[in-house]
Each structure stands twice: as structure tokens, then as C-alpha cells.
């Protein structure tokens, strides 16, 4: 555990914790963004450049902005009087505990916890590209098709609205 890892871990955890605890929805999004950035920095620290930068680009650059837009479109800043914690917090705790148990079991039974330092994989951008274009080309194409369909669907919905207005 290096100093930089500690700093990044604290930033990430603090960001995500603040995202749950803060009252103002926009503050929550900004805190969550800090958490995203911290995770991205952790990826970069582990030498996974592509994943880390994609994380910044997608989560900080797009998802956070999307969330912010969604909040501004739907939520008025004055109505922040509802309690931070849901009344059904017991259910939440049960779900969280279940998720934690599953994750803990998976981590404990995985090879990574066997304390054998595996040789660090050298995942360059080139290799990722090769893998995407050769081995995983079919999933990639299906994803592309799905996303295009979603995009067209969004456009169609938006077009319908405009017709109605006329």
C-alpha cells in the first residue's frame, strides 16, 4: 500500500460516502463524480491506462453530466426537505448485507486472495483493440447495434413530440 493508493482510496470512499449522505442532489452528483475520478485514478495507478481513461471519459464526462441534467430537469432545488434516509432502511440494509456477502464470498474463493502475486498483465491499448476486433467482435457488434437502436428510438420519441406540438 503506497501513499498515493491511500490518498486515492480515501478520496474515492469519501466521495461515494458523501454522495449517499449529502442533502443537495447536485452535491451528491459532484461527490459521486469525485468517487468516479478516484476509481479512474486507481485504474491508472494499476497500469490500466485504457480502462482508467475510459472511466474518466464515460463516467465523469458523460454519466455525471447526464445525472446533473436529469436532476435539473426533474427536481427543484428547494424541495430538499425529505429525509436523507429512506423509511425502509431495514430492507436496504438486508439488500446491502446480501450483496456484501456475495461479493465477499466471490473474493474469498477467487484466486486473487490466495496471496500469490500473479505476473502483471501487460494490457496495452493495442491488445485491447486486438481483443475487441478479433475475439470479441460479435459482442461488440451486438452492443453497437443495440446502442444504435436505442439512439434511433430516442430520436423517434423526440420527433413524435414535435409533431404533436404542431
Amino acid at each position: 500500500m503506497t501513499v498515493s493508493f491511500l490518498i486515492l482510496a480515501v478520496l474515492t470512499v469519501a466521495g461515494t460516502a458523501a454522495a449517499m449522505g449529502l442533502r443537495n442532489a447536485v452535491h451528491c452528483v459532484l461527490a459521486l463524480t469525485m468517487g468516479f475520478a478516484g476509481v479512474a485514478a486507481l485504474y491508472l495507478q494499476l497500469g490500466a491506462q485504457f480502462v482508467g481513461l475510459a472511466q474518466i471519459m464515460v463516467y465523469v464526462g458523460a454519466v455525471a453530466i447526464l445525472a446533473v441534467f436529469a436532476i435539473m430537469m426533474t427536481h427543484s432545488p428547494e424541495s430538499a426537505n425529505s429525509p436523507v434516509f429512506s423509511s425502509q432502511w431495514s430492507w436496504g440494509c438486508i439488500v446491502a448485507a446480501a450483496v456484501f456477502a456475495v461479493l465477499a464470498r466471490a473474493i474469498c474463493s477467487s484466486a486473487a486472495s490466495a496471496h500469490v502475486q500473479p505476473p502483471q498483465p501487460d494490457a496495452t491499448v493495442q491488445q485491447i483493440g486486438d481483443a475487441l476486433m478479433h475475439r470479441y467482435v460479435l459482442p461488440l457488434e451486438i452492443m453497437g447495434l443495440l446502442l444504435t437502436a436505442a439512439l434511433i428510438g430516442a430520436v423517434v420519441i423526440a420527433m413524435d413530440r414535435r409533431e404533436e406540438m404542431k
Binding site: Q49, F50, V60, V125
Partner: peptide
């Protein structure tokens, strides 16, 4: 000299929107 230099550039550029 990043392996993914161009990607890095656009990634930090997207921070400006925030």
C-alpha cells in the same frame, strides 16, 4: 509519453464540462 495519450487528452477535456 502515455500509451493512450490522445484518449487521455479527450478524457481530461471532458472535465471542463463539469
Amino acid at each position: 509519453n502515455l500509451n493512450a495519450g490522445v484518449l487521455y487528452f479527450f478524457a481530461v477535456g471532458s472535465l471542463m464540462e463539469l
